[in-house]
């Protein structure tokens, strides 16, 4: 896809973009279409972080199989993020706890943050986009 080629807005400015993923992967389109924005932002050589919170933590769960619900399985994309230099993946500790999940249940390596740590990280960002 030509959208994935190296892009440049001409300014040479690098901003800190945080993508906040709050929704389960297949109940709505937000996770799937949100990933597209993440990949394009990385193609613009921006400083990208992804946060998974609330039901968004389910996006990273191991063993997702969408055959029965006949929708696209895009969970492999999360494992490919490293190839786009997207390595800052954070999950919210309280969201994990509330859903009985641990890091072992996830398909990628993440950093688990407390609410306070998450708030500090958010405060450092230039742009926060929530899906």
């Amino acid at each position: 896809m030509s959208d994935m080629d190296e892009m440049d807005d001409g300014s040479g400015v690098v901003k800190k973009f945080m993508f906040l993923n709050r929704k389960a992967p297949h109940g709505t389109v937000y996770a799937l279409e949100g990933l597209e924005v993440v990949l394009i932002t990385a193609a613009f050589d921006q400083d990208v972080s992804m946060v998974f919170t609330d039901d968004g933590v389910f996006q990273l769960m191991k063993g997702i199989d969408t055959k029965g619900i006949e929708v696209k399985d895009f969970s492999k994309t999360y494992r490919a993020l490293e190839g786009y230099d997207i390595e800052k993946l954070y999950v919210d500790q309280a969201s994990m706890d509330a859903r009985g999940l641990t890091e072992d249940d996830l398909i990628v390596d993440v950093t688990v943050l407390s609410v306070d740590e998450m708030a500090n990280l958010m405060a450092e960002q230039d742009v926060v986009i929530s899906f």
């Binding site: 892009m7 807005d9 924005v37 394009i40 932002t41 921006q46 742009v127 929530s130």
Partner: peptide, 21 residues
């Protein structure tokens, strides 16, 4: 147009404001 137009807003403008669910 493409999503690059969205990313450009984040890079070039003072604020990006999201209206959604």
């Amino acid at each position: 147009s493409g999503l690059g137009q969205l990313v450009e807003m984040g890079i070039q403008y003072d604020r990006l404001v999201t209206f959604g669910d």
